[in-house]
Nucleic acid binder design. Structure first.
Length: 422
RNA sequence: GGAGAGGUGGCUGAGUUGGUCGAAGGCGACAGUCUUGAAAACUGUAGUCCCUUCACGGGGACCGUGGGUUCGAAUCCCACCCUCUCCGCCA
């Protein structure tokens, strides 16, 4: 959510921002509704002032004036009720339009309509060359008994999978290494609920626009597709201590995604599944653009360094306007090399929001002058499993079908190689 | 799932025969006095949001949330959410 005052005073900037994001929005219509809203609120406030004044007088009046005042106020009450009735639909429309207004993307965000126009800003590592015919992760992992897709779909349906044996060990090794790696960088580890109430999703901007991608329970909660939702909800309606900023949190949670609208994409393997696990970095910091930018770079760099520790070739892209979410100011995606697809695949997404989320979630702090400020929020994937296994397995495969374990993971894995059990 | 109790300002906690209650008291916080310094004591300040004003100020809203009754609601009624206690069930 943006500040209505900001929208009114900068409607060209807001409109241009929406256009850059390829989001269709009618700012003038919003301002028109807001004009009506303001006028009516002013009228209602004035009537209430009369009512309050009369109410005080009635309390101390003699019987005669009392009866007369009450009769007068009955009329005022009627008018007030009418005004409030008129205000109701206007407020509803105002709310609806306000949550549709996208945050303004940064100047440095490139133009473009879809992820095809994201711009590569960095590459790391050499694309893995194999002196033999390499295999894909599905074949490798199945042969090593690390995964069972057949029974996975038997149990869970489309996109189901079961990790087993070395697949499990490797997952835990990655989670443990990530926990150590990111905690050492000042992040406080947390295990977050995936099942969360609607306001968390509204606050983070996943609702109303992304509702069809969420699983919903019969009791009205939703299953989160990322721990970002719960981690941001953690401080909802709080006033944080300025000296506790920045708050750096590292959240683990199962993640659920319906993948509505991508039924024919990535139907094989561990790239796109309905249920996975993720460590997520979340930062709340003071409301300052430069601070947000600095932490954004830091978040993204953290994940890059983690991937470098795993030794997997990657590149980083800056997402174009059309590939940004409603609240995002700027976003970097880190994509890992997947040999058998011959392309980079997204593993991480780092974005900052300014106060777009915190305004909706009411997360504030008092600045040095004692003024209330909405904090700034940022988040980035630390590491998702099992998607990371796709690149790890394919890049580290050997001619005999075994998988060499990256050095950093070996102590957590308890071995340096995954070989076929005899 | 059944029975009961309750949700008030940073915290604690009064207020429930509706009318100067935005809300007593206590604690904490901040500023000052005292002190070599600190503590203690004493004095003073202080909620959030919206509208309006150059400013001083003025007006409105907020006592879990949303409705209702009333001239007027923290106080009465309804629904929902949450917390706590007991029973049942359960990893």
């Amino acid at each position: 959510m943006l500040d209505i005052k900001f929208i009114r005073e900068n409607k060209d900037i807001v409109a241009a921002g929406a256009k850059k994001k390829h989001i269709d929005i009618d700012i003038d219509a919003l301002i028109g509704v807001d004009d009506k809203r303001r006028a009516l609120v002013a009228e209602v406030d004035e009537l209430r002032a009369r009512q309050n004044k009369a109410s005080d007088e009635i309390a101390g009046a003699d019987e005669g004036t009392r009866v007369q005042k009450i009769a007068e106020m009955k009329v005022v009450k009627e008018i007030l009720a009418q005004k409030e009735e008129t205000l109701k639909p206007i407020m509803a429309e105002w709310q609806k339009r306000m949550v549709e207004v996208p945050n303004v993307p940064d100047m440095t965000v490139p133009e473009g309509e879809s992820d095809a126009e994201n711009q590569e800003i960095k590459t790391w590592g050499e694309k893995t060359q194999f002196p033999f015919q390499p295999k894909d992760h599905v074949e490798l992992m199945a042969a090593l008994g690390m995964v069972d897709f057949e029974r996975g779909t038997k149990i869970a349906g489309f996109r189901g999978y079961v990790l087993k044996d070395d697949g499990v060990l490797l997952s835990f090794a990655i989670w443990n290494l990530a926990l150590k790696f990111f905690a050492d960088r000042g992040f406080s580890p947390m295990i977050m609920p995936s099942l969360a109430r609607r306001e968390n999703f509204l606050g983070t901007g996943f609702i109303p626009q992304g509702e069809e991608d969420l699983y919903k329970t019969q009791d009205g909660e939703y299953l989160a597709g990322t721990a970002e939702v719960a981690t941001m909800g953690y401080h909802m309606d709080e006033v944080l201590q300025k000296e506790n900023l920045p708050k750096k949190m590292l959240s683990f949670s199962p993640c659920f995604r319906r993948e509505a609208g991508s039924h024919s994409r990535d139907v094989k393997g561990l790239i796109r599944v309905h249920e996975f696990y993720k460590w997520e970095q979340v930062i709340l910091c003071e409301a300052n653009h430069e601070t947000s930018v600095r932490f954004h770079e830091e978040l993204n760099r953290n994940t890059e360094e983690f991937i470098e520790l795993l030794g997997i070739p990657y590149h980083t892209v800056v997402n174009c306007g059309g590939d940004l979410g409603l609240g995002q100011v700027k976003k970097y995606d880190i994509e890992l090399w997947v040999p058998m697809e011959g392309k980079y695949r997204e593993i991480s997404s780092a974005s900052y929001f300014h106060d777009f989320q915190t305004r909706r979630l009411n997360i504030r702090y008092k600045d040095a002058e004692g003024k209330m400020q909405f904090a700034h929020s940022l988040n980035s994937t630390a590491i998702p499993t099992p998607r990371i296994l796709v690149s790890l397995i394919e890049n580290y495969q050997q001619e005999d079908g075994s998988i060499v374990i990256p050095e950093a993971l070996q102590s957590y894995m308890g071995k340096d190689k995954i070989v076929k059990k005899s």
